[in-house]
Amino acid sequence: MTHKLRYYALAFWLVLIGMSCSDKDDSTLDNVPVAVIEKPAEGQLYQRGSTIMLTADFESGTGLKECTAYLKELKSLKGWDDPWTPEQTITLNAQMTYRIENQWLFEPTIPFDIKAGDYAFVLLVVDSDLNYSSYEIPIIIE
């Protein structure tokens, strides 16, 4: 009888510990902000002198704070100039959902004196509780 009682007490405590651990993990995953990016498209080709535009929908259960867009080089680039690594932060006004449509990014046009090749467009989205998510889209600049 006492073995069964010990067995049930141990099983009860294991269930409680398992439930408390799983609740913490689920809440963290549910609270990250989400972005659906329409522009730039994956693999999109940009010519120097053209413009990079952003179109995206954002959503967060706690309210959106900001998104930061930047470029980083993916592979070896061609040319004598430096890689182009601009950065821009956009405030999202603490709303639960937000849409950016055809917003110019970085500069009015891509500079001519940069290295050409494969870049990654990176979008870092932060919500009011400082949860974040990051999205990376490969693009080509020639």
Rank of each mutant, 00 (worst) to 15 (best):
M1A: 15
M1N: 11
H3F: 10
K4A: 09
K4T: 12
K4N: 12
Y7C: 15
Y8A: 09
Y8Q: 12
L10E: 10
L10W: 00
W13E: 05
W13P: 00
I17T: 09
G18F: 12
M19P: 01
M19I: 15
S20F: 08
S20G: 07
S22E: 04
S22Q: 15
K24F: 11
D25I: 10
D25G: 01
D25E: 06
S27V: 10
L29G: 03
L29H: 08
N31I: 04
V32H: 11
P33N: 00
V34L: 09
A35Y: 15
A35P: 03
V36D: 01
V36E: 00
V36H: 03
E38F: 07
E38A: 03
K39Q: 09
K39P: 00
K39L: 14
G43Q: 06
Q44S: 13
Q44F: 13
Q44D: 04
L45M: 14
Y46E: 06
Q47G: 02
Q47N: 14
S50H: 04
S50Y: 01
I52C: 02
M53D: 06
L54R: 10
L54N: 07
L54F: 12
A56G: 04
A56M: 11
D57N: 08
E59H: 05
G63T: 11
L64A: 04
L64W: 13
K65Q: 06
K65I: 02
E66W: 02
E66K: 10
C67G: 07
C67F: 12
T68G: 01
Y70R: 03
Y70S: 01
L71Y: 01
K72C: 07
K72E: 13
K72R: 06
E73D: 14
S76I: 13
S76G: 12
S76V: 04
L77I: 09
L77T: 14
K78F: 10
G79D: 00
D81G: 02
D81W: 14
D81C: 04
D82H: 05
D82K: 10
P83H: 10
W84R: 00
T85N: 03
E87V: 14
E87M: 07
Q88N: 01
T89Y: 03
T89K: 13
I90H: 01
T91E: 05
T91P: 02
L92Q: 09
L92T: 11
N93W: 07
N93C: 05
A94M: 06
A94N: 15
A94Q: 13
Q95F: 09
T97G: 03
I100K: 04
N102V: 02
N102W: 10
F106Q: 05
E107I: 14
E107P: 02
P108G: 01
I110T: 10
I110C: 04
F112T: 11
D113Q: 13
I114D: 15
I114F: 08
I114P: 01
A116M: 06
G117E: 11
Y119R: 01
A120D: 12
A120Q: 14
L123R: 00
L124Q: 05
V125T: 13
V126K: 15
V126P: 02
D127R: 07
D127K: 08
D127A: 03
D127G: 09
S128N: 07
S128T: 07
S128Y: 15
D129K: 13
D129A: 10
L130H: 12
L130T: 11
Y132G: 07
Y132A: 06
S133C: 02
S133A: 15
S133G: 10
S134W: 09
S134N: 11
Y135G: 02
E136M: 15
P138C: 13
I141M: 06
